[in-house]
Structures are given as structure tokens and as C-alpha cells.
């Protein structure tokens, strides 16, 4: 019999759950306070909202391509996709070689830990910052974008690959070691094939991330492609319709990528 007073709790409050609750409350409080504390500088909320709505309608209901033809837009999109593809490929190549040194079951603890620490640091710095850092040497442009994006992709994929190596490889590594196979043979014949499905999904996921990055790099780092057109349309020609057009184009490609990812996953499930 439970009365209202002493109900059965499913979880006991722990130090971390209390901290989480307090953080959540603080964030809610700050959000509410922030909303009232905004200095609108005499901006009237009503007319401003109406203007925003009309601009959004113009952007998405009347997309136009004025400063470029459709062919040029597609070309720019291909350029962006190319940047994403190239950086994913380079990053994946480097990561697959080094991740066998980072996996605990294939490497010495010192080497593994050092590598993992290094890539944790590389991952902690956002891609765009790496691009800007490499821009110091290479100048702002496609070279800095390729190097910076490759660098971050490599760190991301190294973590993903080495963890799947650790998860999947264990048993087979033991078996092949016991039969006298050497390290390289074990990695190539057992570890990589066992984790192939993980490798494929992680790489594709990174490709999707890199597509978004490549759009941003076009705008922010002058790497060209569709991002650059978006930047020009919004910040240079102030053509809202063109911004809408480019956004639709990017959305379309992103949906295609998502569909591709889903099919890939479905196929692997069937194979399992």
C-alpha cells in the first residue's frame, strides 16, 4: 500500500543527478532572464516579426537564380561535394592506417594512449578553427580548407575506427595470434574485415558532416563552391530569393545523402 506521502522512487538522487537538475534549473532561469533583458534599442516587436515573416516568404516562396545559371549552381555544388569527398577520403586513409596503433588490443598501451590523447585534442578544436590555423601558412582558400578539414576528419575517424577495432577484433586477434600470424596479417585479414560495417558507416557519417563543413568553408574560408555563392548572395548582392534557391539546393543534396545513409544501413542489416 503506498500513500501519497511515501511513493516508491525509481531512482535515488545521486550527486550527479542533483548537479544535473540544478544546471537545468539555472539554464531555464537564465533563458527567461535573458529574454526580458534584451536591449531591443527601440525595435518594435510586432513590425519586426512581420518583416521577418515577409522576408522568409520571399526567400522560400520565390527562389531565384540571378547571378548564376542552374548549370553554374550545380557545378558549385559539385565543387562542394568534391571538397567533402576529398577530405573524408584523405582523413579515412590516414585514420585507417593509424587506428591499428591506437586500438588497445593491437598496440602498446603507451602508443595507444598517446595517439588517443592527440586526436582528442585535435577533435576538441572545431574544424573551422583548424582551417583558419592552416590558413596562416597556406592563405585563406581551398588549400587551407582541405588541410584543415582533413585534419579534423582524421581525428574523428581515428577514434571511431580504433574503438570498433577494440570492440570487434578481440576474439579473432587472439585466435590468429595463437596460430602464429604476425601483427600486419592480423590487422589486414581479421581486424579490418570484421569491422568493415562500422568503418563504412562511420566514414559515410563523416562525409555528411564534411558536406556541411564544406558549405561553411565556402562561405567562411573562401574555399569556393556553393557556400561561396551563398555568402555572395546574402552578404554581397543582398538577394534573398537567391539565398532561398541555394538553401533548397543544399537541402536537396542533404536529403539525398541521408537517404544514401539509410540504404547503406539497411543493406548492412540484411547482411548481418
Amino acid at each position: 500500500m503506498t500513500t501519497g506521502r511515501d511513493r516508491i522512487r525509481l531512482r535515488k538522487p545521486t550527486a550527479s543527478s542533483v548537479a544535473l537538475d540544478l544546471t537545468f534549473l539555472a539554464l531555464v532561469g537564465l533563458s527567461v532572464f535573458g529574454f526580458f533583458a534584451i536591449d531591443t534599442k527601440g525595435l518594435k516587436t510586432g513590425p519586426a516579426a512581420a518583416k521577418l515573416l515577409s522576408d522568409l516568404v520571399k526567400m522560400f516562396a520565390h527562389p531565384v537564380a540571378k547571378h548564376f545559371s542552374l548549370a553554374e549552381a550545380i557545378w558549385a555544388m559539385l565543387l562542394t561535394l568534391g571538397l567533402a569527398f576529398l577530405t573524408t577520403l584523405l582523413g579515412a586513409f590516414l585514420a585507417i592506417i593509424l587506428s591499428s596503433f591506437a586500438a588497445k588490443n593491437l598496440s602498446k598501451p603507451a602508443v595507444s594512449n598517446a595517439l588517443k590523447l592527440l586526436v582528442a585534442f585535435v577533435r576538441a578544436v572545431p574544424t573551422i578553427l583548424w582551417v583558419l590555423i592552416f590558413a596562416i601558412g597556406a592563405g585563406l582558400g581551398s588549400v587551407a580548407a582541405v588541410v584543415g578539414m582533413t585534419f579534423h576528419s582524421f581525428a574523428y575517424l581515428l577514434k571511431a575506427y580504433s574503438e570498433s577495432f577494440e570492440e570487434v577484433g578481440g576474439d579473432v586477434v587472439e585466435a590468429l595470434k595463437a596460430s602464429g600470424a604476425n601483427w600486419t596479417q592480423i590487422v589486414c585479414q581479421a581486424v579490418v574485415p570484421s569491422s568493415m560495417s562500422y568503418i563504412v558507416s562511420w566514414t559515410f557519417m563523416r562525409f555528411e558532416i564534411n558536406f556541411a563543413n564544406a558549405v561553411a568553408m565556402g562561405a567562411a574560408a573562401g574555399a569556393g563552391g556553393i557556400g561561396y555563392e551563398l555568402f555572395m548572395a546574402s552578404g554581397f548582392y543582398f538577394n534573398i530569393g537567391e539565398v532561398g534557391f541555394i538553401t533548397y539546393l543544399i537541402l536537396f543534396v542533404a536529403i539525398l545523402l541521408e537517404l544514401g545513409a539509410m540504404r547503406l544501413k539497411a543493406r548492412q542489416h540484411v547482411q548481418r
Partner: peptide, 19 residues
Amino acid sequence: RKARTRIGMIFQHFNLVPR
């Protein structure tokens, strides 16, 4: 490694590459 080639090993969980 050379000596191990002449010693086979069989495991409870088979330890094969499933794919």
C-alpha cells in the same frame, strides 16, 4: 610465432571473422 604454427587452438566462442 614459428613454434605457434605447429600448435592449433580452438575456443569456446569459435573466434572466427563473422563477415
